[in-house]
Each structure stands twice: as structure tokens, then as C-alpha cells.
Design a protein around this nucleic acid. Sequence first.
DNA 1: CGAAGAGTTGAAACAGGTCAATCTACGTGG
DNA 2: CCACGTAGATTGACCTGTTTCAACTCTTCG
Lengths: 265, 265
Amino acid sequence: MRTQNISSIIVKDNFYSFIKENLLFTGCKEKTVNMFATNAKFKNYKKDQVVYLEEEPSNFFYIIRSGCIKLFHETLDGNEAITDILGANDIFGENSAFDSGSYTCSSQIVEDTELCYIPSYMLKEQIQYDASLALNILTIMALHTRKQEKEIEHFMLHSAPQRIACFLLRLCPENKQKDICINLPYNKTLIALRLGMKGETFSRALNVLRKITKIRIMGARIEIDNIEQLRNFSCNSCSLSYPCMAIDGRHAHFIQKGRGINWVS
Amino acid sequence: MRTQNISSIIVKDNFYSFIKENLLFTGCKEKTVNMFATNAKFKNYKKDQVVYLEEEPSNFFYIIRSGCIKLFHETLDGNEAITDILGANDIFGENSAFDSGSYTCSSQIVEDTELCYIPSYMLKEQIQYDASLALNILTIMALHTRKQEKEIEHFMLHSAPQRIACFLLRLCPENKQKDICINLPYNKTLIALRLGMKGETFSRALNVLRKITKIRIMGARIEIDNIEQLRNFSCNSCSLSYPCMAIDGRHAHFIQKGRGINWVS
DNA sequence: CGAAGAGTTGAAACAGGTCAATCTACGTGG
DNA sequence: CCACGTAGATTGACCTGTTTCAACTCTTCG
């Protein structure tokens, strides 16, 4: 049996294959995957639980099996900056394995979540024996860097309604241009903070967007007749033509239909 | 002779040692370094020259031998977002080797500069044979990611005067608290754009900062009696206690005195 | 000396944040 | 099943910070 070497915690095939199928391990040696799987553990978290806090020593990195978490910074004077919201198959906390050894942000559960956690030292250790692993991590980090760069650009040059438009565009199915109906993936206050604005501003900016682009808003449900209007409004102030980099998720590029975060209704 | 295998372009010892001493190659095999050195070329650039443009195929990555460059995005409607300003020993353009194969931003010379350029494919190729190289790239990228995250936090939560205060703090010598005198590293318009504000706003915000923190401004020269005042003003709205991540330069942590970007007077 | 670029300043416009009131949806307990 | 409480969402009035545009100064460099 393929799973015979794997510790009792993850003997079940579905645990093993969850790990094996993560893009972190694409093309890796079977031995490498087994090594990670043997040391992986799974744990369930409830909404609002804290996974780790900024500056804590980072002994583990995490892969999301199901659910949704946020990464954020909390300032001394009590504000919060949400820098990412992640969903199924996304990896987080891996970064600190390669610099300070402490987590560089805090993480908290947005909705009930099952996490897989793996000792961080394994990353540094195993890239010595499996170049595919190194390449995969590098690719994930390169994509992440690029995404962050895009985000900085947006903060510098986009208005609040434009940032929302961009966010909505990225929720649209890739190959559909017309008659799109999307559901917001989480509550509006959270989206607002993720986009660097207050809830009230989000509400008003969404109204501005509605008037300009003729989208229809019914609570969390948004109908878009033609993405062309949204693109004109947002993407003309952007350095890249549509589509933009996905704002959430650590390797959203790889997302095939039905994998990763995909809230499109 | 140690340099015997190296192509005629870089036979001179100082070219070789420039490459060898870069933190990208710390702990790497001699063979690895030679391989890169053999394929490295050097070129001088004049102010305002473009090194590459966003979305161009990325055949090379660059190491700055001397001078100063900026990385930026240019939007369709003619705006510019400067995402980084780099100096001696900084690496750039390496990112695209691991994702799309196209540059993810444009780069332009700020002051006359000598660049070392090396084929991008070598990175992917050589990490197979030298795990230290992989680890070094990962470390550099992890630090870069962390820096970007800090920057996003600042955009979300800091005012213009606070961002300037943070910028000034990072120009201060590490182990000095009082009677500091710094020279701005480049012109104020460029700093303003780097910090995501307009030149006029920079000018006004610097005045606000002067009144609040009692710093003295004489053109590009700034005198700070005690960094405590600056820290109270800026770092209390930050998730990490002082010192913050360096805003410019790709691996500013490693910077020892006299290396990397260091404009402190 | 004059041109060009960098830097400063003022007035007006605008975007976003703050605070408070209100509204809505939804789950809980009586 | 309904009343209630809570969290999320919206709206209005007001305030602050940043941008815009234009005028003006200062410095630098041919």
C-alpha cells in the first residue's frame, strides 16, 4: 500500500492525497511527499480562533484543508490591517521559515476551518534533496510577490470604487463576459478592511460603482450584465490589462475550476 | 589562478569578487559561483535609461554594481507607481524567472549606474545542483515579501507625515539615537512618489512633521535631535516596534556599514 | 544671464474617515 | 411562533487629509 509509511494520524488516504495534490508538491519525489505527510497533522478551528500571532516563533507552516482564514497586522494603537484572506489549498506561514524564524503577521479563522500543519524546518531540510520542492516554493513565492506588488500599485493609484471594481472582476468566472452573477465570498466589513477602507466607505463606494457601471446589488448578490463597464472603470488605471492578479489566495493562478477559493455562484 | 575559467569579459578579479560576494551566493559551491560569473556581463547605464519594461520577456536578472534604479508600474491612463528604489548589491528582475517569465514591473535608471546581468534560466538550472543557492534566493524573496507586507500595512494605516517619519527613521544609523544628521538619498519628488504621495503633499507633510517632532530641515539635509519623537509619531501606528523593515533595497537587513544603500551622512 | 527642474505655497475641490442614528437579517429563548 | 438581541449594513452630517492647479521661488548648470 502506498500509504504504509505514513503515521497513524494520517493513514487515511484522503489526508495523504490532500497533501500530495497540493501544488507545493507538484513533481516532487514520492519520498519527499511521504516525508511531509508523515510529519503533517490536522486540526479543526472555530471562527475567530487565532492560529498564531505576529512575532511568535514559527515552528509550523499551514495548508488549508477547508474553510477560510485571514492574515493581518495589529498596530500598537489598536488598528488592524488585513493583508490576505486565504481558502482551501492555500499555504501560509511558510515565509518565516526562510527569514527571521518568527511569523511576520497574525492569522485568525474567518469561518470554521480545518488546517494541516507541518514543521517549518522540513522545508529548509527537504529542498536539499528535492529540487522540485525548491522550485515549487520559489514559484509560489514569486507569484505572491507579484500579487503584493499589484496591490501596492492599487493603493497608490486606485480610488475606493476602483479597488472594489477590481475585486469584483476577480470574482468573475474567467471565460465569461456577460450576464454574470456573483456572491460576495465573505461579509462586506471584512472585504472593506481587506481593501484598505472602512465599512461605511465600502458601502458608499459600492453605490458609486453601481451608478457608474450599472451593476445590480442585492445584499451579497451582485449581477453584472457586462464586465466591460467594470473594466473600463478600473483597469484603465492599472499597469496591466485585464485580468489582474487574484487578490486573495496564495496561488490563485493555478486554480482550476472547483479548486482553491472559488465562490462564483 | 582562481579566475582562469571565467570569460574574458570578467577576467578582472574585481568583477569576479563583486559577484562572489553577493549575498545570493553566500555558502554556494565555488563551481556554482564560477558558472554564474562566466555568464555574467556588465554594462553602464545613464540616468533615465530604461533597463526593461513590464511584460517584456525576462531573459536576464540584474545585480547593481553601483548607482541607483527604480522599479515602477505605468498605468494605461499615464500614472506611475514606484514600488522600489534599489542601490549597490541589490538584485532585481530575478522574480520573473520563477513565475510568468515576463518582467512584472518596469525599471529605469535614477542615477548613472553599472549593472551586472545574468541569464535568468541559470537560477532555475543551478538550484538543482546547489541547495545553498536555492536557500539564498528563498531568503531574499522571503525578506522581500515581508517588506512588501509592511508597506501594504503602512498604506492602510499610516498618514503621509507618518510614512515620511518611517522613511526618515530607516535612514538613521542603526545604533544611534541622538543628534543624527541625514541627507535625503534622492530628490524629494522621487521620495514622494516612492511613498505614494504627490510632491506637494510631501512638502507639506514634511512641514507637519517638522512642527510635531522638532526635526530641522535644510534642503536635503535633516537633523534629528532624538529619534524618540519620530518613533512616537510613526511607530505607534505600526504592528512592529522600531526598527521597521527597510523600505528600499532588496536585502537591506544584511547591509553592513558601507555596503548596500547607505546614504547616512 | 537665462532656462529648466526642483521645491514651496495658497486656494479650492474631493475623497475618505468619524460618529451617530437607523435599518435589516437572523438566530435564540421565552 | 413571536419578541428580542445582536451583528452587519446603510445613511447623513461633519471633519480631516490629500490632491489639483496655479503661481512663485530657489538652485543648478550651461
